[in-house]
Simulated assay, not measured.
Amino acid sequence: MLALLFQWYRRRFSDPEAIALLIILLAAFSILFFFSGLLAPLLVAIVLAYLLEWPTVRLQRLGCSRTAATSIVLVIFAGLLLVMMLIVAPVAWQQGINLMRDLPNMLNKLYVYAAGLPRRFPALVDAGIVDVIVENLRARVTGLGESVVKYSLASLMGLMTLAIYLVVVPLMVFFLLKDKEQMLNAVRRVLPRNRGLAGQVWLEMNQQITNYIRGKVVEMVVVGVVTWIAFVLMGLNYALLLAVLVGLSVLIPYIGALVVTVPVIGVGLFQWGLGSDFWTMIVVYLIVQALDGNLLVPVLFSEAVNLHPLVIILSVVIFGGLWGFWGVFFAIPLATLVKAVVHAWPDTLHADEHSVEP
């Protein structure tokens, strides 16, 4: 047994570049695991820097200096965010308040419908079970309302932190974009010298992360806008709020789409019942989801779709459990990183076999 372990160790860890890659991965994992909360503003800034790198490079090619290009891109991006906050956020917030007010009516309507099920299907549904389920839902909704109030009060304590982030994050993004090469050179100086294998993995993952962040933003906007237009044309209540939720759901592969379907179905049932309008809405919603999964995602994430769906779901669960939101957001790139490391990791046995071939 020990001989097998020693042989495996020699095959996998005899290359100094493999040891350097392992050290870099362990150091990065430890820093993110223990200091993810403190590094949240930096992570946000890095994501935004990846997103804004493409237009910055395009402006540089048009003759702008790096500093001027960075300033122009940040001003335009801040303006777009401000417009979104002034137009979309107030309407979505008001619709969310209205939805919370209508939840008791929705539950009463659900109770009336569920109360008739034992009479219609006495062999399948028990009246006692229906009462227990409905009462449990009412208790959860009441607890949800109290939690929202407590969260709102607690969030007041974090307004100062939010204000600091609104100042610190844009500054970080500006310097990450403007001094990109200087910062990369500074990082290279502290890395191990034998990092050829790590550099190979980094080049692949850098492009993957760039495409992934850009693709996720495009996917969120396209899915949210198309869903909003469809819901508005059908006259669905809370159309903008539900469209925002559907757009945000693409951050969590597979699981997000399943979770956001619940409020969409609930609002549709409360507004129309099991009529033709409800089923039309369901068909349109499923078409949007199908086009997203089978057309938009393969176009935007050509490399990511090579991962098996089970691998993606496990990545969401594992990395989400380790790093929360950021683990969920980067679940696919992290799974791709693991795949890239496994494929790039040297195997001296196979190398020796190839070397003796005629």
Rank of each mutant, 00 (worst) to 15 (best):
G266E: 06
P253C: 05
V190P: 06
V246F: 09
T67L: 15
Y254C: 08
V246H: 07
S152P: 00
V134T: 08
Q60I: 00
S302H: 14
E53N: 13
W272R: 11
A92T: 09
V83R: 06
V187Q: 01
N98A: 14
G116K: 07
G63F: 10
T70Q: 04
I23D: 00
F29W: 13
G37F: 08
N98K: 09
M1K: 04
L349Q: 10
V283D: 02
L80H: 03
L236C: 01
V134C: 14
A27M: 14
R61V: 05
A28T: 12
C64D: 00
I76R: 01
G320Y: 02
F174P: 00
Q182S: 10
G273Y: 04
A114L: 15
K109T: 12
V250W: 00
F35L: 15
R214C: 00
L86F: 13
L144I: 14
N105T: 12
Q60W: 00
I318N: 02
F325G: 07
A45K: 02
M157A: 14
V283G: 07
K180N: 12
V132I: 14
L300F: 09
V225F: 11
L203D: 14
A20P: 02
V44G: 00
G158V: 08
F325D: 04
F329M: 11
K339A: 13
L59A: 03
F174Y: 13
A239Y: 03
Y151K: 02
G37H: 07
N237M: 04
F13W: 13
V201D: 06
G145L: 09
L4G: 03
A186C: 12
A20E: 04
M281G: 15
L166P: 00
P358K: 13
Y238K: 10
S276Q: 14
I23G: 02
I313N: 05
I97N: 10
V217D: 06
M106D: 09
P41H: 08
V244C: 09
I164K: 02
R58F: 04
Y111D: 15
C64Y: 09
I87A: 06
L314P: 05
F34S: 08
I24D: 01
L117N: 03
A92I: 12
V264N: 06
L43A: 05
V201R: 09
G96T: 11
V149H: 01
N185Q: 12
I252V: 13
A335S: 11
F6C: 07
R120C: 02
K150E: 07
Q208F: 09
M1V: 11
F13E: 01
D102V: 06
V57T: 12
A340W: 00
G293R: 07
M1E: 11
M220L: 15
V73M: 06
L242I: 09
T142I: 10
L159Y: 04
M183A: 07
V47K: 05
L296I: 14
P253D: 03
A3Q: 10
S71Y: 05
I209D: 03
T348D: 04
N105V: 05
S302M: 04
D15V: 06
D292S: 06
F278S: 10
A89P: 03
M183I: 15
H354D: 12
A89F: 13
P118S: 05
P16L: 08
A127S: 15
S276E: 10
L300C: 02
V311C: 04
F13I: 00
M85Y: 13
M183H: 11
P41F: 11
Y151I: 01
N306T: 15
Q271T: 07
